[in-house]
Design a protein around this nucleic acid. Structure first.
Lengths: 352, 352
DNA sequence: CTGAAAGCGCTTACAG
DNA sequence: CTGAAAGCGCTTACAG
């Protein structure tokens, strides 16, 4: 109810082009059903007015529903780590549900690459799909999947770990190099008798880019500080408990004087279980993530430090960035690094 | 033109309360003119429906204009550093001008605290003011100013430097401690003959929290690496060229074997001028900001490293965060750290 | 204290 | 190929 002597927007364009606003709208969205002549006339006016549409009005009128797919690991009996990102995603979903955002969840098993592939395939079969939020836990399969997304012009956001060459809309997660660097420092803090530190990766994807970034940061700490510790690398691809134990057994028989262990992901608790079983209580243990199991061994003193990256916030921000991009047409950061938190037995009760 | 069997929002509330939507709106915004009885009835329904308003529709209908004030240093003949944040702010302002955001600019002179105060006063005199974007260059005066803003419930965002206790809506700028830490490393890189490094702050606010954070990071580098360099602190409060020169003169006569100089802000070029004049070409010089003058001395080789924090992006993000908060009611990060870039003679032509 | 109606700047059936 | 009209979910004068 304001007096409209100064028209703007589609109305003004329609007036200048001497057509209806419906026709302007068709041109604006490149929809068919407009003669070439009319189209070019309208386009000229749009350009001349330097017009850009009002996204808020557009959203309100269209009532378009955005269908987002979430592809993350399921929390297993072995680790509940992924409960946290899921919680954040659900919080975001709830917040924006009234703005026409629908979220479909697809889970996979971190110990089963096929489950990732089949979930990814299901997503691609969706008739309605406007964006994907995912953890690219299996790198090569993720690349294949996002390749298909790119072909379909469906934006995708990574959380927790990154695949840089995939050119996601956004990556929200830890700065891996720096977190490895910090990990090394936390290891050295607990080393006084020996110079041997075990660098353990327990994952089917042990050779992935992410772990190599952590390793690079880890090594760089020693280089930077002119320390000459012996770093023993141990890749455990079979993540089953027995496999973890026997691999550690072997490492310890070869290097009995290992004094610190760094585990590059949340499976640090299984190393703690091994140390507990063996009564190796003096080993200094550092790992990732504030999962239930890890908290338990942190409390017991078997784990000395946990490095955490606000997993719930990662999920929340991940979904929000899709909403910002799709619905609000806001610019989103291509890389959003989470802070690196250090959790110890002393502060664990106050974390988050 | 969708069939509306499932009403939501104000309409549904009005229907349930058996009032008009205008009355619902009055309750929603706590406007007067509603009987206590009607009000409580409506409030109960709002609560029961767990209603939250559609911000997009609200923005569109209200046509409310947000008046933002920007309070930053003006670029002087001595440094054009502040051109960059201003450019970013203007870009953001242009982008959101069609969404009812108006920006008023207030500048002050970094060498003149009074100019800050009087600009700040002018802002407070504005009849229409919904948010402030500012560089809290003068700490105590800034605190006084934002105190007034808080009383008036006007949100404010800091860029470039922070005043933590002020509890701004958001701070967008460098992580100061880390940048000081990096500065120390860049200094040490150029030190081979002596262990004396000069730590120079050229500012009327030399004792501010920000500079002390940089200093803490700077010192921590030496501590962390068990280096025992001698750090000589030099605070130059009078930023005039003559004052800078005579202060440096004094420092060099007392410590002739200074090998590196770290300058905590963009005035590093004036130290470069001194070194040039004195023909002290072997001094290793590290400072901040990609200003014209600094680029010149970087090119000449008088400055060895510049630490930069994407000033244009700081301005852009700063204004945007006010828009996100006010108009879109989105959550904004309380702290948004910019990356720390290192610029050298070799990469300066490719920076930004 | 309350409500009917117009309008924000778009989009969407629908009719021609 | 084109346009008139209703509507998205709110807000705002205005009338009573």
């Amino acid at each position: 109810m304001k007096n409209n002597n100064k028209l703007t927007g589609v109305k003004e364009i329609a007036r200048l082009a001497d057509v209806s606003i419906a026709t302007v709208d068709r041109v604006l969205h490149n929809r068919p059903g407009v003669s070439a002549k009319t189209k070019s006339k309208i386009e000229a006016i749009i350009k001349q007015l330097n017009y850009s549409p009002n996204i808020l009005a557009s959203r309100l009128a269209s009532g378009k529903i955005f269908h987002l797919a979430v592809l993350i690991p399921k929390s297993s009996d072995r680790t509940d780590f992924w409960d946290a990102p899921l919680k954040g995603i659900e919080r975001a979903a709830e917040e924006i549900s009234r703005y026409g955002v629908r979220v479909a969840y697809y889970f996979f098993d971190l110990n089963n690459e096929d489950s990732f592939v089949s979930s990814a395939d299901s997503i691609l079969k969706e008739k309605k799909l406007d964006g994907v939020l995912m953890a690219p836990s299996f790198v090569s399969k993720s690349i294949r999947f996002v390749q298909r997304c790119k072909e379909k012009k469906i934006p995708f956001v990574f959380i927790d770990s990154n695949v840089e060459e995939a050119e996601s809309l956004s990556y929200i997660g830890p700065p891996l190099f720096e977190s490895g660097f910090l990990g090394a420092r936390l290891c050295v803090l607990g080393m006084h008798r020996s110079d041997k530190v075990l660098f353990v990766t327990i994952s089917r994807e042990g050779s992935s880019y992410n772990y190599s970034r952590i390793e690079a940061g880890f090594k760089f700490f020693f280089f930077e500080n002119d320390l000459h510790h012996e770093m023993i690398k141990l890749d455990i691809e079979d993540t089953e408990r027995n496999s973890v134990f026997s691999n550690l057994e072997k490492a310890f028989s070869k290097y009995p004087d290992i004094e610190a262990i760094f585990v590059t992901n949340s499976r640090v608790f299984s190393v703690a279980q091994f140390l507990e079983l063996k009564n190796y209580s003096k080993i200094h243990l550092v790992g990732y993530d504030f999962s239930q199991e890890n908290q338990k061994y942190l409390k017991k003193g078997m784990i000395n430090f946990l490095i955490c990256h606000k997993p719930e916030e990662q999920g929340y921000k991940g979904l929000m960035s899709l909403y910002h991009h799709l619905a609000l047409k806001l610019k989103v950061d291509q890389t959003y690094y989470m802070p690196i938190d250090i959790v110890t037995r002393e502060n664990q009760d106050f974390y988050r």
